[in-house]
Amino acid sequence: MSDLLDMVVSGLMERLGERAGEVVHNKMGTTMRVSLDAIPATLDFLKNYKECPFDLLSDITAVDWSQWEENTGLKGPPTRFTLLYNLYSIQTKERIFIEAAVSEGQKAPSATRLYASANWAEREVFDMFGIKFSGHPDLKRIFLPEEFEYYPLRKEYPRTGYDPQDFPQE
């Protein structure tokens, strides 16, 4: 981790206090866990950090941990979903990931007021995982047809859907 990113992370921990979780460094980069209600404060801090503004929200995605323990035998996080924000600073070429745990049915705060690109990214997360965002201006499906009833990236959803007639039986 670069000194600059170190400074950002320590500043963020100071700002969030108890709401900040652990920081993980691996090959992918630096990931910081925060609580869900601290997401707007975190993104606001990172976007407006003077020496290293994270002005590009590359992506928002999510992880469904619901079948993790059965499949791997390892202990997963207590909540079902994890939201993952991927932020990039164009000036300094630094990247940071922000992770927040979301349980089923819980609403996540929308980042659309800070990043315009969060609009479609959050719609994709809603389309695939069914995680709802409070404060989103137009939260509807983005890829799948509007009459689609399921959230296909949830682990219990079968690859070929719930309508086996549409597929050749082997």
Partner: peptide
């Protein structure tokens, strides 16, 4: 693309 989102042949 044997998945939920793809039409399995246009002859349907």
């Amino acid at each position: 693309f044997n998945t939920y989102s793809v039409l399995q042949g246009i002859d349907r």
